[in-house]
Design a protein around this nucleic acid. Structure first.
Lengths: 197, 197
DNA sequence: CAACAAACTTGACAGTGTAAAGTTACCATC
DNA sequence: GATGGTAACTTTACACTGTCAAGTTTGTTG
């Protein structure tokens, strides 16, 4: 009578979680709501994900994969002839665009205590995203004569901080004033920082 | 028999919330736990704060006040003869130090969906913190010949993004690998960004 | 066909936020 | 000083949550 076999409940639950996340935000997301959306009983998720944290950890892992892909695509599709600085700007813009397109997912990835931050796979994919972003920084350091490893690493981290900080603050601004049209301009030119320091 | 009057339950609840936040993190924080810690019944908080969101909004307001004060103190106590760039660096360091000293409070202020982000007073105090931080940026723009308002604003936002992004990512790193000693060095020099762009 | 394991359901429990109604203590006014 | 009113707090109740334990169905394997 009841279909005791869903086919691919695991995937369905992850999609349901994504949907609920976008509809009600992270605060409205619950294991039971995901189960209901997938059309199964409230305890079904436990069989595929130990806990709510488990489900969201997995969702974050997938999201990081998409995120990395988006960064990589921006880099690969970008004009290879453009300046390194311009390519970095493009990467930053892709970062921001992902955050604006998937705000709840982005917050889950970077600002939620629910996923297990120590999860091995989550750490791995998060590292890949970082690597993808900073892939643009190293050649720029070379070009500018920054060669010692420590300085390069500091440059990577600061560039990442700038881009991530801007994305994070943009999302916060979006939470305050509904949709935000003054961010349509995308990531502002980081060249200004060059003039400042 | 029962003391039906606590004296200053409102304040006691805010302190309890702060304590619970530090002990169990934002996920372990509950209205009932705060009430218990303050020694009152679970429904008592409702009389002073409409809801959990109300309590945390108020806590965030207070935290932003302390935060602004810390930034101001760093600025005032800083060496007035030091370069503007150095003063900005000092401000960034104060920003980071607050985040590291009060990680849970910092996350509550910037990364939690629980406080009411549209609350008028919260917006106001958050704006004050921003003003305090960017107070150092304007003179630096002047010095560098950046005069048009739009560019100055972009500079402010990018500097804020860099500092905030670094603090945010540092806290995330702390969640992954317990305490983090490789951040003892404080905020890295933003001068590197000047070499990059 | 029988046994077994995997997938899912049902039921239960402790914990949560919050609303409503009841109790106590203080405070102003007569 | 008694009285009424109001603010502070408690008690009770309800719907919802995550998670565990035990039961039911289904597919697979011997």
């Amino acid at each position: 009578m009841n279909d005791y076999h869903h086919g691919d409940l695991r995937k369905a639950l992850l999609e349901a979680a994504h949907a609920v996340l976008n509809e009600k935000g992270i605060h409205g997301l619950s294991l039971r709501a995901c189960a209901a959306k997938a059309g199964v009983s409230h305890a079904a998720p436990a069989h595929h994900f130990k806990s709510l944290s488990g489900l969201l950890t997995e969702l974050a892992v997938i999201a990081f994969g998409d995120f990395t892909l988006a960064l990589r695509r921006a880099y690969d599709e970008g004009d290879a002839d453009s300046s390194l600085q311009q390519r970095l700007q493009t990467a930053g813009d892709a970062y921001l665009q992902f955050a604006l397109a998937e705000p709840e997912l982005f917050k889950l990835m970077f600002s939620s205590p629910l996923p297990d931050q120590k999860n091995e796979r989550l750490c791995a994919v998060s590292g890949e995203a970082y690597a993808e972003l900073t892939r643009v920084v190293k050649p720029l350091c070379d070009l500018r004569g920054i060669t010692d490893a420590a300085s390069v690493e500091q440059a990577e981290i600061l560039v990442w901080s700038t881009i991530h900080g801007y994305a994070h603050l943009s999302l916060k601004q979006m939470d305050v004033h509904g949709v935000c049209e003054d961010m349509a301009g995308g990531m502002p030119s980081m060249g200004i920082l060059g003039s400042l320091f």
